[in-house]
Amino acid sequence: MKVMPMETERHKHVGTDGPESQFVTFEIGEHTYLIPIERVVEFRTWTEPTSVPHTPDYVRGIVNIRGEIVPVYDVAARLGRGMTEPGPRHVVVIVRGEDSRSVGLLVDSVTDIVNARPDNMAPMPKIEGGDATPFMSGVVFAEERILGVTDVDRLVTEAFPDGVEPGGPPA
Protein backbone atom coordinates (compact mmCIF):
# COMPACT_ATOMS: atom_id res chain seq x y z
CA MET A 1 0.00 0.00 0.00
CA LYS A 2 1.18 3.42 -0.84
CA VAL A 3 0.30 6.44 1.16
CA MET A 4 -0.92 9.26 -1.05
CA PRO A 5 0.52 12.73 -0.55
CA MET A 6 -1.13 14.33 2.41
CA GLU A 7 -2.50 17.80 2.35
CA THR A 8 -3.05 19.22 5.79
CA GLU A 9 -5.10 22.16 6.92
CA ARG A 10 -1.82 23.86 7.69
CA HIS A 11 -1.32 24.38 3.98
CA LYS A 12 -4.61 26.08 3.65
CA HIS A 13 -4.24 28.56 6.47
CA VAL A 14 -1.41 30.95 6.82
CA GLY A 15 0.17 30.55 10.24
CA THR A 16 -1.29 28.69 13.13
CA ASP A 17 -3.59 31.36 14.43
CA GLY A 18 -6.20 31.10 11.68
CA PRO A 19 -9.89 31.00 12.50
CA GLU A 20 -11.01 28.27 14.84
CA SER A 21 -13.40 25.58 13.70
CA GLN A 22 -16.20 24.30 15.85
CA PHE A 23 -17.37 20.72 16.06
CA VAL A 24 -20.23 18.98 17.74
CA THR A 25 -19.16 15.78 19.44
CA PHE A 26 -21.35 12.73 19.60
CA GLU A 27 -20.87 9.28 21.01
CA ILE A 28 -21.51 5.80 19.78
CA GLY A 29 -20.62 3.17 22.34
CA GLU A 30 -17.23 4.20 23.69
CA HIS A 31 -16.28 6.16 20.60
CA THR A 32 -16.46 9.92 20.20
CA TYR A 33 -16.89 11.52 16.77
CA LEU A 34 -17.11 15.05 15.51
CA ILE A 35 -19.39 16.83 13.07
CA PRO A 36 -18.49 20.27 11.74
CA ILE A 37 -20.98 22.53 13.45
CA GLU A 38 -21.98 24.29 10.25
CA ARG A 39 -23.40 21.02 8.98
CA VAL A 40 -25.72 20.52 11.93
CA VAL A 41 -29.28 21.69 11.39
CA GLU A 42 -30.90 20.54 14.60
CA PHE A 43 -31.14 17.84 17.25
CA ARG A 44 -34.13 15.66 17.92
CA THR A 45 -34.78 13.07 20.55
CA TRP A 46 -35.42 9.64 19.17
CA THR A 47 -38.92 8.75 18.09
CA GLU A 48 -39.65 5.71 15.96
CA PRO A 49 -39.48 6.84 12.32
CA THR A 50 -41.78 5.56 9.57
CA SER A 51 -40.06 2.51 8.12
CA VAL A 52 -39.44 2.28 4.40
CA PRO A 53 -39.48 -1.04 2.52
CA HIS A 54 -36.59 -2.34 0.43
CA THR A 55 -33.91 -0.41 2.31
CA PRO A 56 -30.75 -1.57 4.06
CA ASP A 57 -31.02 -2.04 7.81
CA TYR A 58 -29.08 1.09 8.71
CA VAL A 59 -31.91 3.15 7.19
CA ARG A 60 -34.20 3.30 10.20
CA GLY A 61 -36.95 5.11 8.34
CA ILE A 62 -38.11 8.60 7.53
CA VAL A 63 -39.12 11.51 9.72
CA ASN A 64 -40.80 14.84 9.12
CA ILE A 65 -38.43 17.75 9.53
CA ARG A 66 -40.42 20.93 9.01
CA GLY A 67 -42.37 19.47 6.15
CA GLU A 68 -39.46 17.69 4.49
CA ILE A 69 -39.11 13.95 4.40
CA VAL A 70 -35.72 13.09 5.88
CA PRO A 71 -34.20 9.61 6.24
CA VAL A 72 -32.66 8.55 9.55
CA TYR A 73 -29.45 6.52 9.38
CA ASP A 74 -28.20 4.40 12.24
CA VAL A 75 -24.59 5.56 12.38
CA ALA A 76 -23.42 2.57 14.42
CA ALA A 77 -24.88 0.18 11.85
CA ARG A 78 -23.46 2.32 9.05
CA LEU A 79 -19.99 2.05 10.56
CA GLY A 80 -20.40 -1.70 10.94
CA ARG A 81 -20.75 -1.61 14.72
CA GLY A 82 -24.15 -3.30 14.89
CA MET A 83 -27.65 -1.96 15.09
CA THR A 84 -28.48 0.55 17.79
CA GLU A 85 -31.34 -0.21 20.10
CA PRO A 86 -32.60 3.29 20.48
CA GLY A 87 -34.56 4.60 23.44
CA PRO A 88 -35.92 8.02 24.37
CA ARG A 89 -32.42 9.21 25.38
CA HIS A 90 -30.93 8.61 21.96
CA VAL A 91 -30.48 11.59 19.73
CA VAL A 92 -31.03 12.17 16.02
CA VAL A 93 -28.71 14.83 14.64
CA ILE A 94 -30.12 16.39 11.51
CA VAL A 95 -27.22 17.28 9.21
CA ARG A 96 -27.10 18.85 5.80
CA GLY A 97 -24.68 17.82 3.07
CA GLU A 98 -23.02 20.10 0.54
CA ASP A 99 -25.70 19.20 -2.01
CA SER A 100 -28.22 20.42 0.59
CA ARG A 101 -29.61 16.96 1.16
CA SER A 102 -30.58 16.41 4.77
CA VAL A 103 -30.34 13.23 6.77
CA GLY A 104 -30.83 12.36 10.42
CA LEU A 105 -28.00 10.54 12.16
CA LEU A 106 -29.01 8.29 15.04
CA VAL A 107 -26.31 8.48 17.75
CA ASP A 108 -26.14 7.47 21.42
CA SER A 109 -25.72 11.01 22.69
CA VAL A 110 -24.49 14.46 21.81
CA THR A 111 -21.94 15.53 24.35
CA ASP A 112 -20.08 18.72 23.67
CA ILE A 113 -18.84 21.38 21.33
CA VAL A 114 -15.09 21.60 20.77
CA ASN A 115 -13.01 24.30 19.14
CA ALA A 116 -9.99 23.44 17.07
CA ARG A 117 -7.31 25.63 15.58
CA PRO A 118 -6.10 24.79 12.09
CA ASP A 119 -2.83 23.32 13.38
CA ASN A 120 -4.81 20.85 15.43
CA MET A 121 -6.62 19.43 12.42
CA ALA A 122 -5.55 17.06 9.65
CA PRO A 123 -7.37 15.30 6.87
CA MET A 124 -7.55 11.54 6.76
CA PRO A 125 -4.64 9.99 4.94
CA LYS A 126 -5.90 8.49 1.70
CA ILE A 127 -4.80 4.95 1.16
CA GLU A 128 -4.64 3.59 -2.34
CA GLY A 129 -6.78 0.59 -3.11
CA GLY A 130 -8.91 0.81 -0.04
CA ASP A 131 -10.77 3.02 2.32
CA ALA A 132 -10.03 2.07 5.88
CA THR A 133 -12.23 4.79 7.32
CA PRO A 134 -14.84 5.49 4.68
CA PHE A 135 -16.93 7.95 6.63
CA MET A 136 -14.19 10.01 8.24
CA SER A 137 -12.86 13.09 6.55
CA GLY A 138 -10.16 13.98 9.04
CA VAL A 139 -8.96 14.05 12.60
CA VAL A 140 -8.87 16.72 15.27
CA PHE A 141 -6.55 16.84 18.27
CA ALA A 142 -8.69 18.09 21.11
CA GLU A 143 -8.79 17.59 24.86
CA GLU A 144 -5.66 15.46 24.61
CA ARG A 145 -7.42 13.00 22.33
CA ILE A 146 -7.52 12.33 18.63
CA LEU A 147 -11.12 12.44 17.39
CA GLY A 148 -12.46 11.44 13.98
CA VAL A 149 -14.43 13.99 11.97
CA THR A 150 -17.41 12.42 10.18
CA ASP A 151 -17.60 12.96 6.45
CA VAL A 152 -21.11 14.31 6.34
CA ASP A 153 -21.22 14.56 2.55
CA ARG A 154 -20.37 10.93 2.21
CA LEU A 155 -22.85 9.83 4.85
CA VAL A 156 -25.56 11.90 3.21
CA THR A 157 -25.01 10.97 -0.41
CA GLU A 158 -23.61 7.48 -0.41
CA ALA A 159 -26.67 5.70 0.75
CA PHE A 160 -25.61 2.65 -1.20
CA PRO A 161 -21.82 2.58 -1.47
CA ASP A 162 -21.78 -0.76 -3.24
CA GLY A 163 -24.11 0.48 -5.95
CA VAL A 164 -26.63 -2.28 -5.36
CA GLU A 165 -30.16 -1.13 -5.06
CA PRO A 166 -31.61 -2.85 -2.03
CA GLY A 167 -34.52 -5.06 -2.80
CA GLY A 168 -33.61 -5.11 -6.45
CA PRO A 169 -33.17 -8.32 -8.37
CA PRO A 170 -30.02 -10.19 -7.40
CA ALA A 171 -27.18 -9.43 -9.74
Binding site: V52, V59, I62, R101, S102, A159
Partner: peptide, 10 residues
Protein backbone atom coordinates in the same frame (compact mmCIF):
# COMPACT_ATOMS: atom_id res chain seq x y z
CA UNK B 1 -38.55 10.83 -0.97
CA UNK B 2 -35.78 11.39 -3.49
CA UNK B 3 -35.02 14.89 -2.29
CA UNK B 4 -33.13 13.60 0.74
CA UNK B 5 -33.06 9.89 0.14
CA UNK B 6 -33.73 8.05 -3.08
CA UNK B 7 -36.37 6.31 -5.16
CA UNK B 8 -37.82 3.29 -3.42
CA UNK B 9 -39.43 0.51 -5.41
CA UNK B 10 -43.21 0.47 -5.04
Amino acid sequence: LERNYRKVRG
